[in-house]
């Protein structure tokens, strides 16, 4: 960086124009000198602007409009008022919250538990279980949802068969309002958290062995070492995974569409399935944008809250 600066100030010194113009022309000169960088960046930047940046800004505009093919009308906060008043939105929000509050902690805990068990195994054991637990993650959610609809089949499904072995009640999981959401929750918990396991394993591998040796000398038992050393040192990973899981569960959609369609009634309607229906079944583009923005804000608030909780907790420890 030092040589371009030297040339630049040298050139600036020669210039006799006013300071503002001079600064602008030196900026342009700098940009011209780095033209290769802009050329490298340009193709992606054009696509990014067209298909991400503009749509995001547009979504915020649409939320304050009533969209029509022949022109849109500004309606102020009307869409947001409809969202706030909507019974359906509230129940979709409630369903999503229930789903999130149960699945997110369990997914993270299961990942931590399984990684803890896998970590001490040898190379072969590690890569076997890592593979076994990650495999369902690479399979499309469409496939997983299709097979789980079959697994939950009232009469011939695998799930009720397993329950019946243990003498447990065997409800018609997906077709009853009282059980449908729980069926989806159980399914998400039983799909192994492949990403979490792999990330925890990587993080565990980077904890220095000496810490454990020192603790062992101090007489700490296995559980104490895990609770006092492993768990606190994994906090950044836990935070990251909780965030990922949170975002994922707020956006739960594919399994809803394939397994229950949001029903029975609206018992499994989630925020994203509601946005989808509002936009592409009811063609209420303005309202759907407002719903999506509210979803975004709620996700953001939850993200901030859990970041704050986990970090404050980290400082107390």
């Amino acid at each position: 960086m030092s040589s371009p600066h030297a040339t630049k100030s040298h050139l600036d010194a020669q210039a006799t124009t006013q300071p503002a113009t001079r600064r602008r022309s030196s900026l342009l000169r700098e940009m011209w000198k780095q033209r290769a960088a802009y050329l490298f960046l340009m193709p992606k930047l054009i696509l990014f602007t067209a298909f991400i940046l503009i749509p995001i800004i547009w979504a915020f505009v649409l939320a304050f409009q009533e969209y029509g093919v022949f022109g849109s009308e500004w309606v102020g906060l009307k869409n947001f008022e409809s969202v706030a008043k909507s019974e359906l939105f509230r129940s979709a929000l409630w369903n999503t919250l229930q789903y999130t509050v149960v699945t997110v902690p369990l997914q993270v805990l299961i990942a931590l538990g399984l990684a803890t068990l896998i970590h001490p195994l040898g190379r072969l054991g590690q890569s076997f279980f890592r593979g076994a637990f990650y495999l369902p993650t690479v399979t499309s959610m469409v496939i997983i949802a299709m097979v789980w609809r079959w697994v939950y089949n009232y009469r011939y499904g695998l799930f009720n068969y397993m329950l019946s072995i243990f003498g447990l009640p065997t409800p018609d999981w997906l077709n009853q309002s009282s059980t449908a959401l729980w069926a989806l929750i159980i399914m998400s918990v039983l799909i192994p958290p492949g990403v979490g396991i792999i990330m925890y394993l990587a993080a565990m591998g980077s904890i220095p062995e000496q810490l454990y040796e020192a603790a062992e000398i101090d007489g700490a038992n296995g559980f104490q070492r895990w609770w006092r050393i492993t768990v606190p040192l994994l906090k950044p990973t836990t935070l990251y995974l909780t965030m990922l899981s949170l975002i994922g569960s707020f956006q739960v959609f594919t399994q809803i569409l394939l397994m229950t369609g949001g029903g029975p009634g609206h018992a499994t309607e989630t925020l994203v399935s509601l946005v989808y229906k509002t936009a592409f079944r009811d063609l209420e583009f303005g309202l759907a944008s407002a719903q999506a923005i509210v979803l975004f804000v709620i996700t953001l608030l939850f993200g901030i809250a859990q970041y704050w909780l986990l970090y404050r907790k980290a400082e107390e420890d």
Binding site: L41, P55, A279
Partner: peptide
Amino acid sequence: LIFWLIVATMMVPGQITLVPLFIM
């Protein structure tokens, strides 16, 4: 500026852009 713009949009969930993209 470009880098942070890119990172910031990574935080925005995809559902937000569904409708505008559809119209486009």
